[in-house]
Design a protein around this nucleic acid. Structure first.
Length: 686
DNA sequence: CCACCTCGAGTTCA
DNA sequence: CTCGAGGTGG
């Protein structure tokens, strides 16, 4: 810790040096050297000195990082060396073609050329100029020839050195790099924005670009912006003319951060291998990348290759398929779900997002539409990230055409014409038609036939649509009246598939009470609740006879679910369907099968990732047979987590909580041990 | 009453 | 997978 000094100039200089050193280790090396409190104390002391002696303020002082006075506007900056864009390669063949072109021009073997490769960060390019080792200017790319001066803003970035490290800085150095925001920084930023009711950003790139273009450097200072250097544009030092990778080493020496994933590879196959590996790592990185940048490493070769009009011949960007795209909302239709809920679905101009064509995206409800301020005709950003489901992230208001249409909830159900109701304070609008509504009837049947309910194979969506529209099937019981000869009359249903369906129905008649209760589709009664009801009451008769008090006595059932259940069974129509189903031969074992030892009783297990030896359902039922509860979310109450390959956030959370984690092999061993009735450490001698 | 855990329901494309 | 809300335990 630095002590006071009689000479303010000397003390200020020392504080600056120490603060910058601490900054470097914290933000560039990721290895803090002094406690935050010491850093703050030193910074405050420097501010005091500078306030008392304004003549001692220097442009490279760390106090400038907190943000100087707002500028009037941004000055235009002309780039001495143009900031070019790169040609793009979208597949491996185009990468090979790049290596071949380079090799031909250099008259060398394409497999003998070294390339320096690194991830292409998804942020914004900036240029930094250092004179006598001091940062004097920062500028955006702009159109490549002229950008905007953002010096005050870049000074606030802690990973940008205000003064170059090391002895003998060059007279002049111009460095290019990317300003970006990491995923974790982005989360923190939006979290803060939500709390204070500020602007929530759509993605890290927009947030970074928006922050850099703030006139008030204080705002930039408060944003988690980071800088990663990737190019030396100008330098007046002979030693720097060997290779690109050596230049990058030099930049690290000066105190810049460069990409830790940077590699020198050889030949076209080396490039492809790099792109491949980077693609595999992409999801696990803490920052967005949109591809890889590949540069001929040898500086002399670069000069020999030179430029075509807009881009260098010695570099190429390999682009991953975009995870985000812009497109337009062509129309919005309202879909009716099993519960009668009306869901607005945007019909989009089809776009390629992360390798697939996206034409639809749910808008969820009217509140979401209001939040997005979406209208028909709007241009929107569509994302298909870690999950598979496309979502509309943001409307680009600036691109709103003059003639857009508001999205209105219809007053009547688009399927059955019944009145649409939206209760006070409710998010969802509901079609009042109930089972009179063909859409709700179809969804109820799909639910009834689904895998976790009666598991009727061969009864797909299309077939259900036909059966309902022809009015052959009005209730689930009608399904069991279908005959092969009638079914074969339908278009696209031959005798073979009709027979399969009838056989599947035959098999489905024999089920379990839990599946049957679940299949009924009672609101708020899913698989877990149905299971709890089945074990508690044992027979359907007892369940149907139960009043709300008796229902609330079941674990995990409160007044809301009890009311739904009571109302459902009180409805004459529903009782008739249940009677009808039993008349059609739907049965289940009244008593649970013979008791086996249940060593996992009271434990909660979580499955995540993919299992190879068995399906997740199978694993779940085997655990359930041992008495364990299988849940979907990891919490403090979880006893063990089974993590297959591709496990994500749940595994991470399990690690944080230091829970027992099994891989598939260990899990299988444990399962078999338990199923044989063994407890760990127990022996089975006669 | 609040904090936390669970459950239910909805979600797109090939 | 994620969101919202029901249920429960402190």
């Amino acid at each position: 810790m630095s002590q006071r000094d009689d000479d303010p100039a000397r003390e200020a200089a020392r504080l600056r040096r120490e603060l910058e050193e601490a900054n470097y280790h914290y933000y560039v090396e990721d290895a803090p050297t002094i406690p935050d409190a010491d850093y703050d104390r030193m910074l405050r002391r420097l501010q005091e000195i500078e306030a008392a002696h304004p003549e001692l303020v220097t442009p490279d002082s760390p106090t400038r990082r907190v943000g100087a006075q707002p500028a009037e506007g941004f000055a235009e900056v002309r780039h001495a060396v143009a900031m070019l864009s790169l040609d793009n390669a979208f597949d491996h063949d185009e990468v090979r073609a790049f290596a071949r072109r380079v090799a031909e021009r250099l008259e060398r073997d394409p497999e003998a050329i070294d390339f320096c490769c690194e991830p292409k960060l998804d942020g914004l390019a900036v240029s930094l100029i250092y004179e006598q080792g001091v940062l004097v200017q920062g500028a955006t790319r702009g159109d490549g020839r002229t950008g905007e001066g953002i010096t005050a803003n870049v000074r606030t970035l802690k990973s940008i050195p205000l003064r170059l490290r090391g002895e003998q800085p060059p007279e002049l150095l111009e460095v290019r790099g990317e300003v970006y925001i990491s995923h974790s920084g982005f989360e923190r930023l939006n979290e803060r924005a939500r709390e204070s009711g500020g602007k929530v950003f759509a993605n890290p790139r927009n947030a970074a670009a928006g922050s850099v273009r703030q006139l008030d450097p204080g705002i930039a200072a408060s944003r988690p912006l980071e800088f990663c250097a990737y190019q030396v544009a100008r330098i007046d030092d002979e030693r720097w003319q060997a290779t690109h990778s050596a230049q990058m080493d030099g930049l690290r020496h000066f105190g810049f951060r460069t990409s830790p994933a940077m590699e020198v590879v050889t030949g076209a196959e080396g490039l492809i291998d790099f792109c491949q590996r980077l693609g595999e790592k992409r999801e696990s990185l803490d920052y967005d990348i949109d591809g890889a940048v590949m540069k001929v490493d040898d500086y002399r070769s670069q000069r020999e290759l030179g430029f075509v009009s807009r881009a260098p011949r010695w570099a190429m960007a390999f682009k991953f398929p975009a995870q985000e795209q812009t497109t337009t909302i062509n129309d919005v239709r309202f879909q009716v779900g099993r519960t009668g809920r009306l869901t607005p679905v945007a019909e989009l101009e089809p776009v390629q997002v992360a390798g697939v064509t996206v034409a639809n995206a749910s808008l969820h409800n009217m509140d979401e539409i209001a939040r997005l301020d979406a209208r028909i005709g709007d241009t929107v950003i569509v994302r298909r990230a870690g999950d598979v489901i496309p979502q509309i992230v943001q409307v680009i208001i600036e691109q709103r055409p003059t003639r857009t249409r508001a999205i209105d909830m219809p007053a009547e159900c688009p399927v059955c014409g019944s009145r649409v109701e939206r209760a006070e304070g409710e998010v969802d609008a509901i079609c009042s038609g109930g089972l009179f509504c063909a859409a709700q009837r179809k969804e109820a049947l799909k639910h009834f036939a689904s895998r976790r309910a009666l598991d009727i194979d061969g009864l797909g969506d299309k077939l259900i649509d036909q059966l309902v529209e022809l009015e052959w099937v009005k209730t689930p019981a009608d399904l069991f009246r279908l005959e092969v000869t009638r079914l074969s009359e339908l278009p696209r249903v031959a005798e073979k598939s009709a027979t399969n369906l009838v056989n599947a129905l035959e098999r489905a008649r024999q089920t379990t009470l839990a599946r049957f209760i679940f299949a009924l589709g009672i609101p708020e009664v899913g698989e877990a609740t149905a299971g709890a009801l089945a074990t508690h009451f044992g027979t359907l008769e007892r369940l149907m006879a139960a009043d709300e008090a008796a229902l609330t006595a079941v674990p995990d059932i409160g007044p809301v679910v009890a009311a739904h259940l009571h109302a459902f069974f009180a409805e004459q129509h529903n009782r008739e369907i249940i009677d009808d189903l039993r008349r059609m031969g739907v049965t289940w074992e009244e008593v649970e099968v013979a008791e086996r030892p249940r060593p996992l009783t009271g434990e909660t297990w979580v499955l995540t990732g993919t299992l190879e030896a068995m399906t997740r359902d199978e694993a779940k039922s085997r655990l359930a047979a041992l008495g364990a509860k299988v849940s979907g979310s990891v919490s403090k109450k979880t006893h063990a987590v089974v993590a297959g390959p591709g496990a994500g956030s749940k595994l991470e959370r399990a690690r944080e909580l230091a829970l027992t984690i099994f891989d598939e092999e260990g899990f299988l061993a444990r399962l078999e041990q338990l199923e044989q009735g063994g407890m760990p450490g127990e022996t089975h001698d006669e």
